[in-house]
């Protein structure tokens, strides 16, 4: 009888501790998803976002990366972006929109057989530089293009 009570007490105490951890923001449900680098995506600084996502923020300009984006995007809510990397062993491709509230738009982690090619559509708040960052062999390469936006796609 007495022993059972101990166990119950212990149990409630442990549960209480987890509750505190959750309320303190240590164990948010988002963190349970693990793989998604929250810090990187919520960062308001492009360099800090790169560091959190790809492990470094020093990039080298490379002409082997092609960033296809419109010169003028009429609608900022839908800006088509295509990135083609000719660099061997491309491991990951990140997309940065410098003037968006949260600059890091996406990180594509590519498998061993995957070609250095991704295409998607993004939202842009205003005219900004769009940078494609390619990670290959532990180094980062980048290419930048300015896209003019006539109507913003964020907020509204």
């Amino acid at each position: 009888m007495n022993h059972n009570r101990r166990v119950l007490l212990k149990g409630t105490f442990a549960a209480g501790a987890t509750g505190i951890a959750i309320s303190a923001g240590l164990l948010t449900p988002k963190a349970a998803l693990a793989a998604w680098p929250k810090a990187a995506f919520e960062s308001k600084d492009a360099n800090a976002a790169l560091e959190a996502s790809l492990g470094s923020s020093s990039t080298t300009e490379s002409s082997d990366i092609k960033l296809k984006a419109p010169d003028i995007a009429e609608n900022g809510a839908v800006v088509p972006i295509t990135i083609t990397s000719k660099i061997a062993n491309t491991e990951a491709i990140s997309l940065i929109v410098a003037k968006n509230g949260t600059p890091l738009a996406a990180t594509f982690n590519l498998g061993a057989t995957t070609s250095g090619f991704v295409s998607t559509r993004i939202k842009m708040g205003k005219t900004s530089d769009v940078t494609a960052v390619v990670k290959a062999g532990g180094k980062l390469y980048s290419t930048t293009k300015n896209v003019k936006v006539t109507i913003g796609g964020c907020g509204g």
């Binding site: 793989a35 998604w36 680098p37 995506f41 996502s53 809510a77 839908v78 800006v79 929109v97 968006n100 949260t102 890091l104 738009a105 996406a106 990180t107 594509f108 982690n109 590519l110 498998g111 061993a112 057989t113 995957t114 991704v118 998607t120 559509r121 993004i122 939202k123 796609g153």
Partner: peptide
């Protein structure tokens, strides 16, 4: 095999 693992922000359309 996983050929692609994309992590997105709300920036995607």
């Amino acid at each position: 095999k996983t050929v692609m693992n994309a992590q997105w922000n709300a920036t995607i359309s």
